[in-house]
Design a protein around this nucleic acid. Structure first.
Lengths: 231, 231
DNA sequence: ACAAAAGTGTTCTACGTACACCCATGA
DNA sequence: TCATGGGTGTACGTAGAACACTTTTGT
């Protein structure tokens, strides 16, 4: 391909804020870097975009390399382009968030070679992060906090079958406030996007709760537009 | 600066969707390119980010070169990174929108040399655009349509002193629907963020309307959070 | 006097919010 | 039988939505 474009010493990268919900806590996936710079620091999973790869594809690839998962809900949310954000040169990074169903079976398969390990860490308990990754995380968190109020993204984080209490807990940790149980349930059920199952929770030492499913079919039929959750 | 980073044939650029409101119409600023590729096509104003320049700075620079204006409301909204979006190589572009007070005096000072002219064109009457700029425009328009519902960005487009009818017209063109006059005025005035002036409209051949100002001081005092306009 | 837009209130409905107790289950 | 969360209803206040006529001003 002929190019008339000027050449700069510049690189694109992708960084991902990958959310999971487990044991009542909102977590993100962090890696421990085993490359300079910031070797041995915690960082968001991310890497350089390849020459012949779209940025969406790069985001999916990075997620796959770390988790073995495909077809995950991902969304681009901001691009960070300060001159000195990377100590070794000009790197502009496009940030994505993803939401993963942890399902108890949260085994990670880090196929990647740029991370010595990958772990889920509660968003309330994050270590210092490499580069400007704390800023990136904050902005991503703000984004989903915002989005959960008008889009049904919460269901991406829950197991397929969940109780209303689990759903409420998830809203509470993302919005960082207590919600009223009766009001929450009334509102949720009123939307008509939950399918009540004939099944109950198992293995709890108290009254078992009914299980529900997110009814995506009904959701898209009812709402071309948007909901307002969690307010 | 030592660099261990790989080198790609890749370039960052910025593209801007610059909105203005004039004669009851929402317009954007387009340039006619005088460089290949897409020479003589209409395009969004945009250019390559310089080596030692942040992307926010690049966006402001591009706006300044075309309009002579600084300190304008600008916001990054999406990054477009498909492999073949530029015919001459890999170009990832970060898109910004801006809002400009046209004020009748809408003279443009295109200091730039990559555009043979720049004009304001109604969003309802756009020509075919170069590259993927139609996609970029649509996404930017969607973004402000969304944002105007919960943030007071409309005032960035209006003259300092405006009538309630002008304000309503602006909401109507952005939201693309008719609003009820009485409800609109009641709601707007209830927020308490408009300052009623002792002045009236001039030069109209019918009953002159009261002029208002956006009271930014009151706005920030009242709302740490957000409003919901235009619904 | 006419044309054009300014300006103004009420009613109904829907939704958010506050609030506390009994129930079912497993240990 | 006890501990633990599951599950439920009412009353109030607020905000959005529907809806039409009179007033002012310049020509």
């Amino acid at each position: 391909m002929e190019t008339l474009l000027p050449k700069f010493d510049s690189v694109f990268s992708i960084d991902c804020v990958i959310f999971g919900f487990d044991e009542g806590e909102l977590k993100i996936l962090l890696i421990e870097r085993n490359e300079e710079p910031f070797k041995d620091w915690w960082a968001l999973p991310g890497y350089i975009v390849e020459q012949e790869e779209s940025i969406d594809h790069a985001a999916e690839r990075i997620l796959y390399e770390l988790t073995g998962l495909r077809d995950i809900y991902m969304d681009q949310f901001y691009t960070f382009g300060d001159v000195n954000r990377h100590p070794q040169g000009r790197v502009i990074t496009v940030a994505y968030y993803a939401m993963i169903r942890l399902n108890g079976s949260k085994e990670l398969k880090p196929i990647s070679n740029y991370a010595s390990k990958a772990v889920w860490i509660s968003v309330n308990d994050l270590p210092k992060l490499a580069f400007d990754h704390e800023k990136i995380f904050s902005r991503g968190f703000e984004k989903i906090r915002n989005k959960i109020s008008y889009q049904p993204i919460a269901f991406e984080l829950l197991p397929e079958k969940f109780t209303l209490t689990q759903l409420q807990q998830l809203y509470e940790v993302i919005l960082n406030k207590k919600l009223d149980k009766r009001n929450f349930r009334k509102k949720m059920l009123n939307y008509g996007i939950l399918k009540e199952l004939d099944e109950k929770q198992k293995g709890v030492s108290y009254r078992a709760a009914k299980l529900y499913k997110f009814d995506k079919r009904k959701y898209t039929r009812l709402f071309q537009k948007e909901l307002t959750f969690g307010k």
